[in-house]
Every structure is written in structure tokens, then in C-alpha cells.
């Protein structure tokens, strides 16, 4: 059990001493999660909005599929993305295997169902009254769309935070697609896996705490954003 206490001390030491390996992993984690979040939000928010907003045939079935995809195992996503990005895979020539953008693709796939499902739920919850109100105040179709989107901003924010949590903490995709390459694709989670593999449990705990610190700061800034 003493490695947990050791982990706390070490986490502090790593952060204060600006340990280059740790900061390289932090930077890689932040970069890759930013890419994947940007991609999944750009694609997922409009899709989630449509899914919650529009009434079309097969909507319920699509909703069911999206909800099922919420349980995508990360290792499975990693494996599939690896198969596509491998040099013998269909997109091998893009050279994305063992790169951060490659991991980001996998993580975006992981985050996409979360963003879509939670955005759709948020949009569904605003129901007919908003639409009625906006049209009765003279909103055109474009304003109707934009204002509705703005109205669900907290729902979208919640979707983003949830997806961010999943993306930041996953290890299967980063390991499989990124390869845990030191100074390049080693993220905090793959570093934890490595340190644990090496039997350095204290270091693993320390890195886990670092990840929690980052999550804490993300959530603090989000709640600040909400207050404004």
C-alpha cells in the first residue's frame, strides 16, 4: 500500500520539478485530446442536433445504434483504427500510425457517440416551446437553428466534458494506435500502463494523479464558462 503515498509525493515532485518526460506525456495527452475533441464536436454537435431536432424515418433506430456505441470498448476501437491506419491497411499511406493525429482519430470515434447522444438528448429536452417562442418572436429558419443551438449550449458543454473525460482516460487506443513511443505518442495513460508494467507502481499512481489534476482544471474552467 505504501506505493500510494509514494505516488502522491512523486506526483508533486514531477509537477514541481517540471520533469520533462512527464510534461511530454502531459503535452501529448492535451494535444491528442484537443484534436479528438475538436473533431468529435465539429462532427458530433450538428449530427446530435439533427438527431434530436429533426423528425425523420428511422430516427429511433439510429438513436438505438448511437446509444449502443456509447459502450464501444477502447481496445476494440484501437484495433479497428490500427487495421485501417496500418501500412497494409486502406489508409496506410497517410502515415498516421504511431502519430498523435492517428490516436486522435480513434479517440474521436470513441467520443463521437457520446457527443451525438448527449447533444441529441439536450436538444430533445428543449422541446416545442422554444421553437414556438422563437417563431412567434419573428425568428427566421437560420435564427431558429442558431438560437436553438445556443439554447442547448449547456447540454453541449456537458456532452463535451463527458466525452473529454472518456478521451483523456482511455488507454486502449493510445497504446494500439500510438504505440507508446517515448517523447512522441506516450500519453499519461500509456505511461501509467508502462510504469505499471515495469512494476513502478508509485510512478503509475503519480501519473494518475497528474491526470486527475488536469481533469480538475478542465472542469474548473468549464464551470467558470457556465457562470459567465
Amino acid at each position: 500500500m505504501d506505493f500510494i503515498a509514494e505516488g502522491f509525493v512523486q506526483a508533486f515532485r514531477l509537477l514541481v520539478s517540471l520533469d520533462p518526460e512527464t510534461f511530454s506525456a502531459i503535452l501529448a495527452t492535451l494535444k491528442v485530446s484537443s484534436y479528438s475533441m475538436a473533431a468529435s464536436l465539429i462532427v458530433g454537435v450538428p449530427l446530435g442536433f439533427l438527431l434530436g431536432y429533426a423528425r425523420f424515418k428511422g430516427r429511433k433506430q439510429i438513436r438505438l445504434i448511437v446509444d449502443t456505441l456509447l459502450s464501444l470498448p477502447t481496445v476494440f476501437v484501437g484495433l479497428v483504427v490500427y487495421a485501417f491506419l496500418s501500412n497494409r491497411g486502406p489508409f496506410g499511406e497517410w502515415g498516421l500510425l504511431f502519430t498523435l493525429p492517428g490516436i486522435a482519430i480513434g479517440q474521436a470515434i470513441l467520443a463521437l457517440p457520446i457527443v451525438i447522444a448527449l447533444t441529441a438528448t439536450a436538444v430533445e429536452s428543449i422541446d416545442d416551446h422554444l421553437r414556438l417562442t422563437l417563431i412567434s418572436l419573428g425568428a427566421g429558419r437560420k435564427q431558429l437553428f442558431l438560437t436553438s443551438l445556443w439554447e442547448v449550449r449547456y447540454g453541449v458543454l456537458a456532452a463535451a466534458v463527458t466525452a473529454y473525460g472518456r478521451v483523456m482516460t482511455e488507454v486502449g487506443i493510445s497504446m494500439m494506435v500510438g504505440g507508446n513511443i517515448k517523447w512522441h505518442t506516450r500519453t499519461i495513460t500509456t505511461a501509467i500502463a508502462l510504469e505499471t508494467n515495469k512494476g513502478l507502481f508509485g510512478m503509475g499512481v503519480a501519473l494518475g494523479l497528474v491526470l486527475l489534476f488536469i481533469a480538475f482544471f478542465v472542469n474548473v474552467s468549464v464551470s467558470f464558462l457556465r457562470k459567465r
Binding site: L130, L132, T133, S136, L137, G138, G140, T147, W150, E151
Partner: peptide, 20 residues
């Protein structure tokens, strides 16, 4: 959505909705 009615005809629905 036609211009002749936009913001000239205003409906107050039974359940008021205020934007956030």
C-alpha cells in the same frame, strides 16, 4: 417565415418559454 408576418404577428404561448 414570410416577411409579412415575421415580427408583425406575435403569439404568446400558453406555457411561456424564456431563453437562457
Amino acid at each position: 417565415f414570410s416577411n409579412a408576418v415575421k415580427s408583425h404577428v406575435a403569439l404568446l404561448p400558453q406555457t411561456p418559454y424564456l431563453m437562457k
